[in-house]
Amino acid sequence: MRQFTAVVNPTAGGSAGAATLLRLARLLREAGAPLETEYSLSLAHARDLARRAGERGRVVLAVGGDGIAGGIGGALSGTGTVLGLVPAGRGNDFARALGLPDDPAALAGILLHGEPRRVDTLEVESAAHPRTVVLGSVYAGVDALANRHANRSRLLRGAASYYAGGLRAVAAWRPADYRVTLDGREHAHRGYTVVAANSPYYGSGRLIAPAARVDDGLLDAVLIREAPRRLFFALMNELRTGAHVHRPEVRVLRGRELRVEASRPVPCGADGEVEAVLPVTVRVRPGDLAVLY
């Protein structure tokens, strides 16, 4: 029988997140699976808790949103420890990419009886973060600013907070000149953003990279070039379905290593939590993490 350690972000999901964890814990214990719960004080603390649990041979459950999922997933990448996700945060985009259910009973069945499957992770290098490993996506430009606004929102949650953050960010954004180098080949780009996607989703269900797969050993680089603001607002709406990739203003490239630089300081983010400024380098680590899904 698997033994579980749940590492919880106590600020994610509010009462709904707590209720999900309580139901899941009851189901796991009724099935005879030992479960211990650890509450993190910070993302660094969550990583440490996860590593220590993994060293004891336990399956680590990341309870919260994309920040704690990416932080713990990155900490366990390459260690052999098995990760389970309990989506209870604002975005839950990596859990969405894995097709994980919201229902605690269905999720408990996967955690108890599912076979671990290998997924890719992303290694990120920047001046602020010499080496960080994340799960879902790295984004440089207006979406990093939008995510910052969403995380600081006190009135809105979920997709509404990201949409409002996006509107606020776009209204003040000036297009930047980027130098994008993918697998050694340079691409000039002037526009709003560059996204390195391991997962199709970001920003609470926005389908930024519809063809991205978590287990193909590649990242999808999505480049959105300069356009009138009214067109960019239309693009934001099309992110719900992925239709934006058919517009001439959007370019999608695929590769294993991406470096993004800019002519001025441009914010960069990853998995909802990591904040930095360009330049940044992103590398795929193929099949480096075992996940239950």
Rank of each mutant, 00 (worst) to 15 (best):
A44F: 11
G269M: 03
R251M: 05
H113M: 07
H244M: 02
E238Q: 15
L112S: 03
E226S: 04
R283S: 09
A53G: 03
A211M: 14
V250Q: 04
T193C: 02
A196C: 00
L156Q: 13
A69L: 12
F4R: 08
R56D: 14
V134S: 12
G89C: 03
T11N: 12
V260I: 08
R256V: 01
L182W: 00
A88F: 10
V124M: 09
G70P: 00
I68G: 02
F94Q: 11
S161Q: 09
G136S: 15
L258M: 09
L122E: 08
A227P: 15
P104L: 11
V60S: 00
R190K: 01
T121V: 08
V291P: 00
H244E: 02
I110T: 15
R29K: 10
V8T: 01
V222A: 01
L135A: 09
A172M: 04
A196D: 00
N237K: 15
L278S: 02
R118P: 12
D215C: 03
G71C: 11
G54V: 02
G242R: 03
R206E: 13
P200L: 13
R90Y: 12
G70Y: 00
L155C: 14
L61A: 00
A146N: 06
Y192N: 11
L24I: 07
G99R: 02
T81G: 04
L145N: 01
R52C: 11
D120H: 02
L111F: 10
R90W: 12
G78H: 04
P87A: 10
L28F: 04
A159K: 15
R52W: 13
A146C: 08
A105T: 10
L218A: 09
L76S: 07
A44M: 11
Y201V: 06
L83A: 14
D120T: 02
R157S: 12
D48S: 15
D183H: 08
A160H: 14
L122M: 12
V7Y: 03
E55G: 13
R118W: 05
E226C: 03
E125G: 13
G114W: 15
E186D: 07
T20Q: 15
D66E: 05
E273M: 05
D216A: 09
L253M: 04
P228Q: 06
V222K: 00
A108C: 06
R47N: 06
L100T: 07
R154C: 13
V245W: 01
